[in-house]
Amino acid sequence: MVGLKVAYFGSDFFSIRCLDHLMNLSFKQHHIGTLDLIAKHSKRGGRGNKQILETPIVSYAKLKQLNILRAEKNSEIESLSANSYDLAIAVSYGKLIPQTFLKSLRYGGLNVHPSLLPKYSGPAPLQHTILNGDSVTGVTVQALHPTTFDKGSVLKQEVCHDYRPDSETTESLGLKLADLGGPLLSDVVKFTFDNLILPEPVETSNEYSYAPKPSPSLYQINWNVLSTTEIIRRFNALGPLYTFKHCHVVKKPPFTGLKRVILDKISPIADISSNLSAELTTPGMFTSVEDGLIIKSLDGYIKVKSLKFQGFGSQDSNSFMASLPKRTGDSVHVFLFNDS
């Protein structure tokens, strides 16, 4: 029996990891006979728009010598109907697959979603799982809905038992859920190949919630509001965060106002010395120790090992502190929240 002809729509590391499992399982077991990688068009970027920027999955597809097709507009995706695919798989593609194309497929479409649907439907389930400190998460294989994201029938779902709420980052959790979801996807493909139909939907007990793209405001730290745990969750979910430093420089060019400071390599501190505790009395206050900058949060302290002052490159904490007098003048060592 000839394997299925599959169109795989993907873009990022999560879709690459799922595709890798699919290649190692379904493709090698001949459940898939032909697989075309459908990618978005390359774009120009960089200085002077001289660089050609590709989605990460294109490099993977070239390495695996897959056939790469470009489709982004609805009309371009619909034109793929001429290829007579049996099945479409869309993972982190970031675009709704048109109904016209789905109707042309023998078995419709599949998606791997990194949450226990219908919880965290939407584009940022990984980030919201970490931001909310969820104790349980997992992955879902669903049928593609013709008109709405994440509204398809749930075909398979599994809890991630290797999930570590206190230390997961978006990348680490994404890889774990892809390593769970890729084999689940392969199971659905095998079932479809063997039975000439998609599996029956399964019942889920999770309540619906939506996971939108994180608001830009979440990247700024409000020292008077956020606990150490909340700051660490934001860093793990979103990456580098930022704050502001008041400056009063009288030398040319004179400047009085706020400058942005980006904080990276952030970690929690369980305890500090009594001397440091006495020095850091107000949220946002900071001081330098040998291996980082200690900053007072609402209920504790964090350590930051990399900082980037507005208009300058990244520095370690000692270099940052040494450069402060010239950049900020004679001002108090405290970071501020800018609500304007």
Rank of each mutant, 00 (worst) to 15 (best):
Y85T: 14
L37N: 04
L25W: 01
L102I: 08
L25Y: 01
E171A: 03
G133H: 06
N318K: 15
I295D: 15
N83Q: 11
V189R: 04
L19V: 00
S92H: 10
K43T: 10
E200K: 15
A270Q: 10
K296F: 08
V188N: 09
I89R: 15
T192M: 04
G108L: 06
S267P: 01
V332C: 10
H31N: 14
I57A: 09
N275V: 09
S331H: 04
I294L: 14
S135V: 05
L96Q: 09
L53W: 05
T34R: 14
I68D: 13
D166G: 02
Q315S: 08
P212G: 05
S92Y: 08
S227G: 06
F27C: 12
N206M: 10
T148G: 00
L218N: 08
L177H: 00
I89T: 11
K245S: 13
I197C: 13
P123D: 14
H246M: 08
V225P: 00
S323H: 10
H113N: 08
T228L: 06
T147Y: 15
L126S: 06
V154W: 04
I130L: 11
L22T: 14
R233G: 07
S215T: 07
G33S: 12
S153E: 14
N206D: 11
R164D: 08
G108S: 14
S167Q: 11
L175E: 09
P214Y: 00
F149Q: 06
D271K: 10
S314M: 01
T229Q: 10
A211Q: 04
I295C: 12
H161K: 15
L336M: 11
W223Y: 02
P283N: 13
F335I: 12
Q29N: 09
T147K: 11
R17P: 06
F337G: 08
D271L: 11
K64M: 11
I38Y: 01
Q315H: 07
V289T: 12
A124D: 06
G138W: 09
S79L: 02
V141W: 01
T243A: 07
E72T: 03
L226S: 03
R44D: 05
I130Q: 14
L184C: 06
Q157P: 03
C247A: 13
N222K: 04
K326Y: 06
P123Y: 13
Q99G: 02
I197S: 13
L280A: 10
Y8D: 02
V136Y: 02
A88Y: 05
T100N: 11
L180E: 07
C160P: 08
V261Q: 07
F337I: 05
G311P: 14
V189K: 11
H246T: 12
G109T: 03
T229G: 04
V112N: 02
A82V: 09
P114C: 12
I57T: 03
T170G: 11
L198K: 12
T204H: 05
H41G: 05
K176T: 01
E54H: 12
S209I: 02
A278W: 06
I231K: 02
H333V: 00
D330V: 05
G94T: 03
S135D: 10
L63N: 13
D162P: 01
E76P: 02
Q29K: 09
T282G: 02
S314F: 00
H246A: 08
E203F: 03
